[in-house]
Amino acid sequence: MAGAKEIRTKIASIKNTQKITSAMEMVAAAKMRKAQERKEATAPYAEKMKSVIGHLSHAHPEYKHSFMIEREVKRVGYIVISSDRGLCGGLNNNLFRQLARNIKVQQESGIEVEFCTIGKKALGFFRRYGGRVMAEATQLGEAPRIEDLIGVVKVMLDAYENGEIDRIYIAYNHFVNTMTQNPTVEQLVPIAGESEEELKHHWDYIYEPDSKEVLDGLLTRYIESLTYQGVVENGACEQSARMVAMKSASDNAGELIDELQLIYNKARQAAITQEISEIVSGAAAV
């Protein structure tokens, strides 16, 4: 009965793998729910902030912060948000492909590019393909904290303020639903698309200590919160992509096991048939 034992061990090992992938699937499903809640929790802060900034720029049309002024673009910065871990299908690769297309367009029009990376996969990507990485943050974990992002965002904003870069983009995966994640590259600074909506009331505020300082702090925090939102959203994408990938891996393992089981049964059957025919022919010979 040659091969039967090998097939049996193979089936056992695939079963083990299947156990792992289905466990990962369940873990990812649980984490995905939490990540989605976290993503929704970030929305009110950014909304409030946007409305305060809207008020301020409305009340002070003469004062334009440098984060709001478009200027000629010679060099751009990208904040690239990826996951720390793999085994999440094509999530990171899809984002990098979108990004690579974007970079190509920039480079063709003679614009230089620089990067800040968040997450190990993005860092690994630029390590392989080059690209000036100004700052990085990894190991943010399941519940990223805004402290971990302050450094990266500040490096970019400082470079912007000093005129080293003229525009900042953010690249992350946009969460549509569990099955769909859209790689997205958006402009972060200068703050794009100021809302033109008419405010119902407008009044001038008293500023303490003064309007410039307040607006400064506000805009920095706004950009940080947008980056944070990107990170949290990418986290939700990571978990759902992993869940889907692990589900299909478990399904594949199941199919493989069925096939192998069939082969095993056939081999076993053939061995028995052969044995019987040997006995019968032996008996006939007597």
């Binding site: 800040c116 990085e136 450094g151 990266v152 500040k154």
Partner: peptide, 10 residues
């Protein structure tokens, strides 16, 4: 300090 740290890591 956070910015410098992020740069150094990169």
């Amino acid at each position: 300090a956070a910015a410098l740290e992020a740069k150094r890591r990169a």
